[in-house]
């Protein structure tokens, strides 16, 4: 029997190692590569941009690709590739801030509500219900009206608006975990609530938290792009993909769709890659955990 158990032990250890190398499939790996490229671009985009993104050549308005300008020019005669590269940072940093903030806030609230239960839980649920009633974009527009345009105010507003979604989901998963005997055992062992939550409860709801964070990132990418499109987010002449879609709109009417297509494509690819990677990582975590 013990020889059997040993054999089983080695097999499962080996399997775990294989998962770590390629547990997310070909598509997952492609998505991972795309995400890495996006992150690199967000960091070094301005450094590798071949031209000043705000350098205008009036003669080249909506100009097609040339030797020094592989993607051509936008409606103001600025180099499109440079603007895409420089725009990566603000287009991806904003959603990142939103996702991180919403996840931090939502998860903290959810864990506390699930842990303490009773009146605290009821109160937090009520607060979340009220927040649910406010659309994120509306709150962001309000924040812009009060604190001015830019990236920070709408990002914080969106984070607040996304918090209840994260909190509600994580709370429901946490409540199931809190009532399981392993948590009861740790309580009887005299481990502090904070330690149990940090070292045991949180790791067990982490896949849900990560999945929801990725979802928040995707939604924030779109919502922030929408705000830029409405002229409330990042302001011209800054390079930003949402803003570029907005600017490119006039070009479409005139038969020049390159700007809107490239910027819109960059947004779509980002959201898609992050979503695919997120869901693959979730699946893998699920397989490994239980």
């Amino acid at each position: 029997m013990s020889a059997n158990a040993e054999a089983l032990g080695t097999v499962s250890h080996r399997r775990r190692r294989l998962h770590a190398i390629r547990g997310i499939g070909v598509i997952g790996n492609v998505a991972a590569v795309v995400v890495v490229i996006l992150v690199v671009l967000a960091v070094i985009g301005p450094l590798i941009a071949p031209h000043d993104p705000n350098e205008v050549s009036f003669s080249a308005t909506y100009g097609g690709p040339t030797a020094g300008h592989p993607l051509g020019f936008d409606g103001t005669g600025r180099d499109l590739l440079s603007r895409l590269l420089v725009g990566a940072r603000s287009s991806l940093l904003g959603p990142l801030i939103v996702a991180l903030l919403a996840t931090l806030l939502g998860t903290t609230i959810a864990l506390a509500a699930a842990w303490f239960g009773g009146r605290f839980d009821a109160f937090m649920s009520m607060v979340l219900d009220i927040l649910f009633a406010i659309p994120g974009l509306l709150l962001a527009i309000l924040a812009v009206a009060v604190f001015g345009r830019g990236l920070t105010a709408p990002a914080i507003a969106l984070a607040v608006a996304y918090t209840p979604y994260t909190a509600r989901l994580v709370r429901s998963v946490s409540i199931a975990e809190v009532s399981s005997p392993y948590i009861a055992s740790l309580l009887v062992q005299g481990l502090s609530s904070l330690t149990i939550c940090r070292r045991h409860l949180f790791p067990n709801v982490r896949p849900t938290v990560v999945a929801q964070a990725i979802l928040s990132f995707s939604f924030a990418t779109i919502d922030l792009a929408a705000l830029s499109y409405l002229g409330l987010g990042v302001q011209p002449p800054s390079a930003n993909w949402g803003l570029m879609v907005s600017e490119g709109q006039q070009g479409i009417v005139q038969g020049h769709d390159a700007v809107a297509l490239w910027a819109g494509g960059a947004l779509v690819v980002s959201v898609l890659a992050i979503n695919v990677l997120g869901s693959r990582l979730m699946d893998r975590a699920e397989e490994r955990g239980r």
């Binding site: 005997p181 392993y182 055992s185 740790l186 067990n204 955990g289």
Partner: peptide
């Protein structure tokens, strides 16, 4: 100390 009935749910699955 207490030992519960179900050994499947009595241990942290991720540890």
């Amino acid at each position: 100390q207490i030992v519960f009935q179900d050994p499947y749910t009595s241990l942290d699955p991720r540890e």
